[in-house]
Nucleic acid binder design. Structure first.
Length: 103
DNA sequence: AGCGTGACGGTCG
DNA sequence: ACGACCGCCACGC
């Protein structure tokens, strides 16, 4: 498993859903590689919807990454649900690979 | 080779 | 529920 696998997973996240760094890392066989996943995002090709990757608390990336409010707008535009405190509602919007057909 | 750093996460008080 | 702490891991200096 390599960072290419992470990119592939990110490319699968549908609009309106998000995944966490730790989640991605675990899926590619690095259970303690959350930071590794984050680094992968920093080096990710622009095509990748890396704005759909957030931390385990539902917080977005620091403003200096995408620019002030940018990631927020992107997610809002896609229909991601935010809590009153400004965090993403992970309970509703976390993307679970393979669970799509499990209604 | 050693040390500090960070788009993180789980635990503990 | 929240903040403080510590542990991980790859990178750059």
């Amino acid at each position: 498993m390599n960072e290419g696998s992470i990119y592939q997973l990110v490319s699968l996240i549908p609009a309106g859903s998000v995944m966490t760094y730790g989640q991605l890392a675990a899926l590619v066989g690095k259970p303690h590689g959350a930071r590794y996943a984050a680094r992968a995002m920093a080096a990710a090709p622009g095509e990748l919807p890396c704005h759909r990757v957030i931390n385990a608390k539902g917080e977005l990336a620091p403003e200096h990454i995408f620019g002030q409010g940018v990631q927020r707008q992107l997610l809002l535009a896609e229909g991601v649900h935010f809590l009153p405190d400004g965090r993403v509602d992970l309970r509703r919007c976390r993307f679970l690979p393979g669970a799509a057909d499990r209604i």
